[in-house]
């Protein structure tokens, strides 16, 4: 698998996204945002009260992750995905507002699947519990808002070849229901 790595850039063209199929392994490179439970709640509250978001989510990638603090010699501490299902309540609204790509782990509900299909998004699954190794894929990291949330603050990070599995593709195929796709 190492020899024919499928590398994907965050400035992904639609036609490339449409070719991805649930169960495929890809390596993602580019700028992405970290946001989990508390940040999602705040973002949706801002949308509901017609206030601007602290960063533009249009065509962006959000990774459900709260990293460990970094040692002085590290760019970021250990970082891996948290359970996506807790973001299910918020995701459709973010997708409606332009977010396309999500990275997490575990099941998504039907509403999220429908939104992904409708707006041609992708749900990627990162490898849970391989957080020390995954920290090596991060080239830079900066808190951009909600700093008071500690590890739940929103960060912008630059990743290089982060290994991901396509969880739900643009047709709505779900890897967990379609293990034969692998």
């Amino acid at each position: 698998m190492e020899n024919n790595k499928k590398i994907l850039y965050t400035t992904i063209q639609n036609r490339d996204i449409n070719n991805l199929r649930a169960g495929e392994m890809v390596y993602l490179t580019g700028d992405i945002y970290l946001a989990r439970d508390a940040a999602h709640k705040k973002l949706v509250e801002l949308i509901d009260s017609n206030k601007p978001l602290p960063f533009d989510i249009k065509n962006q990638v959000v990774y459900y992750a709260g990293p460990c603090p970094n040692r002085p010699e590290q760019v970021i501490g250990s970082i891996g995905p948290t359970t996506s299902a807790r973001m299910d309540l918020y995701s459709p609204k973010l997708i409606e507002n332009g977010l396309i790509y999500m990275i997490g782990k575990g099941y998504r509900n039907e509403k999220v699947k429908e939104s992904i299909k409708k707006y041609k998004g992708i749900y990627f699954i990162a490898i849970s519990g391989a957080a020390a190794l995954m920290s090596k894929c991060v080239e830079s990291s900066k808190v951009i808002c909600f700093e008071e949330l500690g590890t739940e603050a929103v960060r912008k990070i630059k990743i290089k070849e982060l290994p991901l599995i396509v969880g739900i593709d643009t047709l709505g195929n779900d890897v967990y229901n379609n293990k034969f796709l692998l």
Partner: peptide, 14 residues
């Protein structure tokens, strides 16, 4: 991942 965590004294999981 386990090897790296042990060698560099970094958490296995975030």
């Amino acid at each position: 991942n386990q090897d790296l965590a042990r060698e560099e004294n970094i958490p296995i999981c975030q």
